[in-house]
């Protein structure tokens, strides 16, 4: 394992039935850095995150979190070890209020101090009694992130956080990510290259289920272009 790596994925292969969708993926995510994974639809980005978080069982390969192998653990066990995953669908529990959504995360992680959540996402304070079904996309994303940072959070995996959001909301989220990066390791899947360039300390490119490039220098990240590179 590389020195200072918060999360390491080694030679991971994932299949859906007979169809293989991830081929020998190996990635290293340094501690307290923002890593961004980019690629077109179907490149295997979401599959990779789901397999890391325990929602998909890899055919082979391993996932190491801060020195502990977490391959094959159930998702709740992965979460309790400090690796959180925020899926791209922006779905929160629609029949539960914002308060109840946060209460569940508090119960699971045994952390009932919401001051951190409200510092990053102050708007949630006004929405405490609103049911999940009546939140906007941006508000749902904030709630999902708020739930995820309760308890110990060493690594936060976020799948397409800015997809479908208004530019002003995207800027708020980018600001929140910059703040969060000082407290935990961020791994983002992002198709918005402007956001990716602004946040990334390192960047992985995925194509057809394979990691095809790794950019760790500023110049390389800045020069990334959708048509040319993806």
């Amino acid at each position: 394992m590389a020195t200072g790596a918060a999360l390491q994925v080694n030679n991971m292969n994932v299949s859906y039935g007979e169809s293989r969708v991830l081929f020998d993926a190996s990635l290293t995510f340094p501690a307290s850095a923002v890593s961004v994974i980019v690629g077109r639809n179907g490149a295997g980005k979401t599959t990779l995150l789901k397999a890391i978080a325990g929602f998909l069982k890899p055919g082979s390969g391993s996932v190491v979190l801060g020195g502990d192998e977490i391959t094959g653990l159930r998702p709740y066990q992965v979460v309790r070890k400090g690796l959180k995953y925020i899926p791209q669908d922006k779905e929160v529990f629609s029949d539960l209020t914002v308060r109840e959504n946060l209460e569940l995360a508090s119960y699971a992680m045994k952390d009932h101090d919401w001051s951190k959540v409200l510092r990053y996402f102050p708007k949630l304070q006004q929405l405490m009694h609103r049911k999940g079904a009546y939140l906007s996309g941006g508000e749902r994303q904030m709630l999902m992130m708020g739930r995820a940072i309760l308890g110990k959070t060493h690594v936060l995996l976020v799948d397409e956080p800015t997809e479908g959001l208004a530019p002003s909301i995207v800027q708020d989220l980018v600001a929140a990510f910059k703040q969060l990066a000082s407290h935990c390791t961020l791994v983002l899947v992002e198709q918005n290259l402007a956001v990716a360039r602004e946040l990334a300390d390192q960047l992985y490119l995925m194509k057809e289920g394979k990691v095809v490039a790794h950019l760790a220098d500023r110049a390389g990240i800045e020069s990334l272009a959708f048509e040319k590179d993806l």
Binding site: Y76, L96, E100, L104, M109
Partner: peptide
Amino acid sequence: KAIRAGIEDVDKTEGLGID
């Protein structure tokens, strides 16, 4: 509340860290 959340989506409930 965890039961109500699970009725909506079991995976997301587990994703919060609930067994």
